[in-house]
């Protein structure tokens, strides 16, 4: 206690005291925050994981009951296991890669690699009626930050079964509308290849896509940059899977 008493009696305006005080405080705070961060990490990780699973399920519309589930994590795990039968990792040539966990892939990191080295995740789901859907993650840039999503294709690798998108900080009411159902449900039934099997992706058209256009959806009014970013995101990400598409439809 001797040292502490001495410290307490020091002139609070002296240089030594100021230094000691500042160092002591910083160390204390650092230790405290480190403990908090480490002990809360598992819960935070689990939240992120569940969110990703919900997003994947959303792309083919199997999210009923999640909001009401008493134990959200377990409920989502169960539904996810029920529908997702296979998790593949492929490279740009469509070859399957072993030993990589598809769920754990960070798409942002993969997209910044050279094309040849990318590990691309694919999720395969079998619905109640036996139909097979393939779910592809997409990621791109909106106006203020990243946007991402999951797109489910039918097993013809052409028709979109469903899509879900989310964003980090797009303008509320404008660009942020990409995560609404009204916007997302437009994608169902659109095709990404034209009649001559040329890859055309899905266009996000400002001013409204024609009702009969099979390759386009309406953009968000007032959210032009987000809409364009979304269009590029879908195009760029699907481009990686061209070889895989060809293999599956052979």
């Amino acid at each position: 206690m001797g040292v502490l008493d001495k410290f307490k009696k020091m002139d609070t305006n002296s240089n030594l005291y100021t230094f000691l005080y500042a160092s002591g405080m910083v160390i204390l705070v650092a230790v405290l925050l480190a403990i908090a961060a480490t002990s809360l990490k598992p819960a935070q990780q689990k939240n992120k994981e569940t969110e990703k699973k919900v997003d994947i399920l959303k792309s083919f519309g199997k999210t009923e009951g999640i909001d009401k589930a008493a134990n959200k994590h377990r409920f989502v795990d169960d539904v996810f296991k029920k529908f997702i039968t296979e998790q593949l990792v492929v490279n740009i040539h469509g070859d399957s890669i072993q030993g990589v966990d598809a769920f754990g892939i960070d798409l942002k990191a993969e997209l910044s690699k050279p094309e040849e080295e990318r590990n691309l995740p694919v999720f395969k789901a079998i619905l109640e009626d036996g139909s097979v859907k393939y779910i592809f993650p997409v990621r791109g840039r909106g106006l203020w930050g990243p946007i991402w999503g999951y797109i489910a294709l039918n097993d013809d690798m052409n028709t979109i079964y469903g899509a879900t998108f989310d964003h980090q900080g797009e303008t509320p009411g404008l660009g942020a509308e990409i995560n609404t159902l009204q916007f997302q449900k437009q994608f169902a039934g659109k095709t990404i290849f034209d009649n001559s099997h040329k890859f055309v992706s899905v266009q996000v058209v400002k001013g409204g896509a024609g009702k009969d256009n099979p390759h386009a959806v309406d953009a968000i009014s007032g959210g032009t940059i987000t809409s364009t970013g979304l269009q590029e995101m879908i195009h760029n990400c699907f481009e990686n899977y061209q070889a895989f598409f060809n293999q599956q439809t052979k």
Partner: peptide, 26 residues
């Protein structure tokens, strides 16, 4: 120490805010 009182305040506030943020995330 009077000379660093604003910084001390900031450290205390920042530490609390980070705690709140971590708890909200969890």
């Amino acid at each position: 120490p009077n000379r660093i009182r604003i910084i001390v305040q900031l450290v205390v506030v920042a530490a609390l805010v980070i705690l709140v943020d971590e708890i909200l995330k969890a």
